[in-house]
Design a protein around this nucleic acid. Structure first.
Lengths: 222, 222
DNA sequence: CCAATACTCAAGTAGTAGTTTGAATATTGA
DNA sequence: TCAATATTCAAACTACTACTTGAGTATTGG
């Protein structure tokens, strides 16, 4: 008891969890799976990698314990082993945002300048939802909306935003998506503004809303 | 904006944080530094590695943003960049405890069987501290006690436990140390029981107490 | 300025990780 | 049973990581 070899083995096992998230592509995989389960092919498409390579990463992560699988016909569907993995990913992102030099420049390069989009805080959105004077749009893919969304949000995937008709021009809109580093809501806000709507984006996304313990709705309905 | 190269770079940057904790020895370094700042030599001794190798790890972690340094005479003192790093380490450990196959066996191999030590929960310790009917012993090294401890705990490093005299045999004792995977408190409880005291250990340790938002005392005093 | 102390750097080795390519396996629906 | 689809496996390559050894650098106290 208490010897070096045993301590090494134990801490190596802890480190396995960090290893499971220690490549950019694996971090992206977690970021996708936080939104709900996905097949290998879908994940490969999201992270722009070959199916074989994606499969390799997924297996490694499953071996480390952070992912679970389930078969659905010919497909294998991967999901996070638990919400705690999402918490850890959030902690990791926060640490990076606070301490990694140059992360802001990298984020800007990816998401572009957001200051014009007037991000709305969770707190503010919550208040205005209660007041009922805004329309909230969930611009993620429909499956992610169905897996869970902010109450009373309408599902309008960014790819189908053009078809949106039934909104008065003076309605205020808040769009949200996967999180602070997701560009769907930015794209949606820019598009809506070009068409004359008063649109803003939520400063983060659905997972943060859920993690904060705010109410959510599961399924297709409102 | 929103292109692949930029997204890769951003997520690679997030992954740097995980990489900083993705070896067992680095995880141990974080586990030590959660207790307070340390010099390179002290850390090397704690993790049983050469000073050169330890220095290498420390620099890499500092480069990744999770550690900060400060010079003190001829020594370089490393510390966590912020408490959020400790939160992330805790999340990692929890995920491992929940999901990594075999972690319990590894933990048992290192800490031994704990069931006989009758671990006391934070909640219970809090209540009994208020009632004032127990003695709490901080069995970590003295510097760690001074960096912060549970109010009214007495500093009795496990190495000096033999000298402990001034306790009535019928006093109930709760010992605590660095956390659930630290063996100082186990060692202390076993030793105290051999000498006829009624001793138990806190189920986790000081960092968890602090993280839970419970009151702490900083400095040498009670 | 010198010696002692504490830490970092550089080079080398052995082992591991990420990606690609092409073949192999498992399940479904006909 | 057979073809089609979805996923995994195996091999190979490149690049990186952990650790060791020995030399180099910076600060302190005399």
């Amino acid at each position: 008891m208490g010897d070096r070899a045993a301590k090494n083995a134990l801490f190596d096992a802890f480190a396995e969890v960090a290893k499971a998230l220690s490549s950019g592509r694996r971090a992206e995989i977690v970021d996708v799976l936080v939104q709900g389960e996905r097949s290998v092919e879908q994940i490969a498409a999201e992270i722009d990698q070959s199916v074989a390579n994606t499969s390799h990463h997924l297996r490694a992560m499953a071996r480390a314990g952070v992912l679970r699988t389930r078969r659905e016909g010919t497909r294998i569907v991967y999901r996070l082993a638990s919400d705690r993995i999402g918490d850890m990913w959030a902690a990791m992102r926060d640490v990076a945002a606070e301490h990694v030099a140059g992360i802001n420049e990298l984020a800007d390069a990816y998401v572009g300048d957001r200051s014009a989009l007037e991000p709305v805080s969770r707190r503010e959105l919550e208040a205005r939802l209660k007041a009922g004077d805004i329309v909230v749009l969930d611009v993620r893919p429909a499956v992610e909306y169905e897996a869970g969304h902010i109450p009373d949000a309408r599902s309008v995937p960014v790819s189908e935003l053009r078809r949106l008709r039934s909104l008065a021009k003076d309605t205020e809109i808040v769009a949200y998506c996967r999180g602070p580093y997701c560009v769907y809501a930015d794209e949606a806000v820019r598009q809506l503004r070009r068409r004359g709507f008063a649109a803003k984006r939520l400063e983060d996304g659905y997972p943060e809303w859920k993690r904060a313990g705010l109410p959510i709705t599961v399924g297709a309905g409102g």
